[in-house]
Simulated assay, not measured.
Amino acid sequence: MTNELLDRALVEEATKKSGLIWVRGAGAPAARALWHVWHEGAACVVGDGPGEQPLPGLADGSAAEVTVRSKDKGGRIVAWSATAVELAPDSEAWEAAVAELKGKRLNAPDGEAMTGRWSRECRVVRLEPTGATMSLPDGSLAEAPLPSAATTRQPVPAGLPRLLFKGRKRR
């Protein structure tokens, strides 16, 4: 009984303090990083709408695996199993969860109208802990990036040093 209470406290505190959680829904090929809020004993997420995060495999009543990372170091702290519960738009539970989510949503394109858009076009899902924690994997779960034409490193243009040091005089 004591271990169960300690596990529940660890899940709650770690999830409250973390800005992101990694969630793998039923049938999803890999876990996704999702922003969330901890509200009334569960992690609440919003998504699956235009401009919002995707929620693959998080159907109402499905199982999910949640991994919580440390906010300061980024390492895994705890992994726990959850049941996904989709909240009905404009219900009392939905309103309470959205009030919390609204304060955490950064850079919303529609500002105050975002809750109306969430009601029409998005899903709000509660990830309710089942009480079971899972053992953390030993190795890295990093995957190779997908092939892309995008690049971050290019040679410095030949004229750039002249432009940067044009106004400076050496003494």
Rank of each mutant, 00 (worst) to 15 (best):
M1W: 09
L5H: 09
L5I: 09
L6N: 15
A9K: 07
A9N: 09
V11L: 03
V11Y: 06
E12N: 08
T15H: 04
K16Q: 15
K17N: 15
S18I: 00
S18Y: 00
S18N: 04
G19E: 13
G19A: 10
W22N: 09
G25C: 05
G25L: 00
P29S: 11
A30G: 10
A30H: 14
R32N: 12
A33L: 13
V37H: 03
V37E: 01
G41T: 04
A42W: 02
A42E: 01
C44F: 05
V45D: 00
G47N: 13
G47F: 07
G49E: 11
G51D: 05
Q53W: 12
L55W: 00
G57C: 02
L58R: 01
A59I: 04
S62T: 15
E65F: 04
E65K: 10
V66G: 01
T67N: 01
V68S: 00
R69G: 05
K73I: 01
G74C: 04
G75L: 11
R76T: 00
I77A: 04
A79V: 05
S81D: 14
S81W: 06
A82N: 03
T83L: 12
A84S: 11
P89L: 07
P89D: 06
S91I: 06
E92S: 14
A93T: 12
W94N: 04
W94I: 03
W94P: 06
A96S: 12
A96W: 00
A96Y: 01
V98I: 14
V98D: 02
L106I: 10
N107S: 06
N107T: 09
D110K: 08
M114R: 08
T115G: 02
G116Q: 07
R126E: 08
L127N: 05
E128N: 05
E128R: 12
T133L: 08
T133E: 10
P137R: 02
G139D: 09
S140A: 09
L141D: 13
E143Q: 11
A144H: 10
P145C: 02
L146N: 11
P147S: 03
P147E: 05
T151R: 15
T152G: 15
A158C: 07
A158E: 15
G159E: 14
P161G: 05
R162T: 13
L163H: 14
L164C: 10
G167F: 05
R168V: 11
R168I: 14
R170K: 14
